[in-house]
């Protein structure tokens, strides 16, 4: 750990890969009325972009993969094309 160019070590930092939200072609939109709070979306999100407490989505880093929407048993998350904003 003394010389970073000998050992390829890294520690995760928020946003180390840049604002990956710009990669998105479709964004997940959550309907909290339909949401039962099961937190499957929080569990499955590969980027950790869903807030555990308020189920808010961090659009700065969400890449729009759609896994949250596909996993949601209540169909409370729909993917909206970015062009349609």
């Amino acid at each position: 750990m003394n010389d970073r160019s000998i050992y390829p070590l890294s520690q995760p930092v928020k946003g180390a890969g840049g604002k990956t939200g710009s990669w998105r072609t479709a964004k997940p939109v959550i309907d909290l009325e339909k949401c039962s709070g099961c937190l499957l979306c929080w569990l499955f999100c590969p980027e950790g972009c869903i807030g555990k407490n308020d189920r808010s989505i961090d659009y700065a880093y969400c890449k729009g993969c759609g896994i949250c929407g596909a996993e949601c048993p209540k169909k409370a998350i729909v993917m909206v094309k970015e062009e349609q904003r």
């Binding site: 050992y7 390829p8 070590l9 890294s10 520690q11 995760p12 890969g17």
Partner: peptide, 10 residues
């Protein structure tokens, strides 16, 4: 406890 990774994307 260290919480780091090795050989990550670079």
């Amino acid at each position: 406890q260290w919480g780091g990774t090795f050989g990550n994307v670079t």
